[in-house]
Design a protein around this nucleic acid. Structure first.
Lengths: 202, 202
DNA sequence: AGAATGAGCGAACAGTTGTAAGCTAAACGG
DNA sequence: CCGTTTAGCTTACAACTGTTCGCTCATTCT
């Protein structure tokens, strides 16, 4: 086997080891270098051949998680074309991701407010992809001015993201309730934003 | 000095030590028992005279943080009576809390998605106080049916909470923008919920 | 006054952590 | 084919962790 090939292989082993150790009771911050190395089947010191420290690994994980999210968006678009029903399809796709890759979602959820500024901004950047894309859609589809389209998109993404977080601690029989609740909230936002030029009431 | 009195005093010293060690780069989870004891000016082993373990301390901190939040709500109500402008006053009061007690807010923000189920539900409970109170207000003030009032209140609280989180990483000159953006979002919600009986469009 | 209680302490423990130094051996480049 | 490169290893160390044990000594109770 080629050397570069083998190196990439154990690099992936490290990444996978890290992902697989994440859980409801174990955050990335509570992961130790040695633990990861052990799970990856390498000596602790070999870790350094691939990452300078745990932070570098963490940023890689966030990047990969963001990648999965973007693939998800593409998948959601396909479904929408065949299905119509933009809001419902989007949320349901997202919920499937959250429940099917809960550890990946948890990583983003936690590091969004974690102790590393670099992590926080990395997660924020991934979320902004969502917001930007949704905002563009809203600009095309509605008569919303640019600035307000963004604010609307941000609110929507926050609510959906938060619903995902709720789902992590909720029993599966509540998923459909959570989904429909969020659909209602998003419709309110869309409806409110549509019928609302500017009203400086307070 | 009475014994109980003195005990309460060092108990507070421990709590204050823990709070004061929290920061943008230091979460409760990354706090060690010895660190807290050192800051509180006691021997590590003396910690156990007051708390069974760090988790118990953490739950106490969450409770205290929740208490501060409830005091904040009361304060906001007073301001509203003198000031009118419900939405703006509420958000501004909240933002003052976030910026003035950022470490307390960060605790709630982080433990909401932390690794301890007990912490998560403790924070969720505190947030539910907000939601319940706001939902009751909406029921009185509007024609919203109960279930929808709750959904509306939840969305609003989430958005406000999230704005607080944004403020933690934003330069102070952006606070007013964040505030007005959130006001807009809340108005959309209120407006959308008001003019919306039930419309099964998708 | 005398006994009991309990907050706080120091020493010690077994465990874990990140990381440095130096070696081996296999893949590579000339 | 021989020298260089380098992924991975073992060993080692110093720092820190949570927790147990037994002691002191001021407050409290009888």
């Amino acid at each position: 086997m080629s050397r570069a090939e083998q190196k990439e292989r154990t690099r992936r082993a490290i990444i996978n080891a890290a992902f697989s150790q994440l859980s409801a009771d174990k955050s990335f911050a509570s992961l130790s270098l040695r633990e990861v190395a052990r799970e990856a089947g390498i000596a602790p010191t070999s870790f350094y051949r691939h990452f300078a420290d745990m932070d570098e690994l963490g940023l890689t994980l966030v990047d990969e998680a963001g990648l999965m999210l973007r693939q998800l968006m593409r998948q959601a678009r396909q479904r929408i074309e065949k299905n119509g029903s933009v809001i419902r399809t989007s949320i349901e796709t997202f919920m499937e991701f959250v429940t099917g890759n809960s550890n990946v979602f948890r990583l983003l959820l936690r590091e969004r407010s974690g102790t590393s500024a670099a992590f926080r901004s990395a997660v924020a950047r991934e979320i902004q992809h969502f917001v930007a894309e949704l905002a563009e859609y809203l600009r095309k589809e509605t008569t919303c001015p640019d600035e307000l389209a963004r604010a609307q998109a941000e609110a929507m993404v926050i609510l959906v993201f938060h619903t995902g977080a709720d789902a992590l601690d909720a029993p599966p029989e509540q998923y459909s309730y959570l989904t429909s609740r969020t659909i209602t909230q998003l419709r309110w936002l869309a409806h409110g934003a549509a019928g609302y030029g500017r009203k400086p009431k307070s």
